[in-house]
Design a protein around this nucleic acid. Structure first.
Lengths: 202, 202
DNA sequence: TAAATTAGCGTACAGTTGTAAGCTGAGTTG
DNA sequence: CAACTCAGCTTACAACTGTACGCTAATTTA
């Protein structure tokens, strides 16, 4: 195995170790360099060959999580294009995501309100992407004026993320109930923004 | 000063110290017993005369925060009763609250998605109170059926808390913008649930 | 007033932390 | 093949952690 390959592999095992530790009830700021090293099977000081800091590792994890989110969006769009209601499909896709990648979503959720301003900003940026894409979609599909669409998209994303937080630790049955509830709530918003627009035509 | 009075006073200064430390960017789980003791001006071991644990202190703080939230609700109701739009008044009151008691709201926000299941549950319970009271109000004032009112209330609270998170670190100008935005979004929901109900009359 | 209670303190200890310093051995390069 | 690079290791240290133990002094109780 080449030197670079080996290094890349170790780096990945550090990242995996960190996600593993996040799986139990921990924050990024609450896991220590030594723990990560232990979990990754390397000496504590070897950590520095890959990351300057725990902070640098943390930002890497947030980036990876953001990547996963964007893949999620792409998947949702694909599914919608091939038939199915927008709201139903989006919520189902989202719920599947947080079930299959619970530690990724947990990371985003925790660090969104977490201790480090840098992490908070990074997560906010990822969520903003999400909102932007949704509002583009709404403008295009529903022909709703830009400013209203933006408000609609933002509130929808907020609701879905908030519901996702509740769903994160729930079993399948509770998750289904949460899905159903949030779908209805999203319809309120859709109906409402439509009514708002029609009452005040531009 | 009586012994009990003195003890109560020290206990309060421990609580104050903890809130003080939360003011900087810390989680409950990230502040140490010794730090709290230092900030409170007592010896580390004296802490145990008042709390079994840092966990016990943490739950106390969450309880205090919940108390403050309930006072907030009462204040909002009073203001609404004495005239003013429900949505405008509620949002304004909420924003004033998180401005004046930013560390209290920060605590709730962080521990809601935080590390400790006990804290998460405690915060969720407080938010549930909030939602329940709002849905009672909606049922009573707007004559909307119970199940729809519950969904409406839940989504409104979620939106307001989520907007509050963004407002927490914002300056006055940004805060005003966030307020205005969330007010419009709440109107979407109100209009939408009304439309939903009228489309499907019971 | 004598005895009992107890809030707060000082000392102590074992465990964990981040990271500095320097070594080794294997892959890379000329 | 010889020189170089560098991922990972071991050792070391000072800082900090939670908490056990026992003392003191002041209030409370009998």
């Amino acid at each position: 195995m080449s030197r670079q390959e080996q290094k890349q592999k170790t780096r990945q095992s550090i990242i995996d170790a960190a996600f593993q530790l996040l799986n139990e009830n921990r924050t990024l700021s609450a896991i220590s360099l030594r723990e990560v090293a232990r979990e990754a099977g390397i000496a504590p000081t070897s950590f520095y060959r890959h990351f300057k800091d725990m902070d640098e590792l943390g930002l890497t994890l947030v980036d990876e999580a953001g990547l996963a989110l964007r893949q999620l969006m792409r998947q949702a769009r694909r599914r919608i294009a091939s038939g199915g209601g927008v709201i139903d499909t989006s919520v189902d896709t989202f719920m599947e995501f947080i079930t299959a990648n619970s530690n990724v979503f947990r990371l985003l959720l925790r660090e969104h309100t977490g201790t480090s301003a840098a992490y908070r900003l990074a997560v906010s940026r990822e969520i903003q992407h999400f909102t932007d894409e949704l509002s583009d979609y709404i403008i295009e599909q529903l022909k709703i004026p830009h400013d209203i669409a933006v408000l609609q998209a933002e509130s929808m994303v907020r609701l879905v993320f908030s519901a996702g937080a509740d769903a994160l630790e729930a079993d399948a049955i509770l998750k289904a109930a949460i899905s159903q509830r949030v779908k209805k709530q999203l319809r309120f918003i859709q109906l409402g923004s439509l009514a708002f627009w029609q009452k005040l035509p531009d």
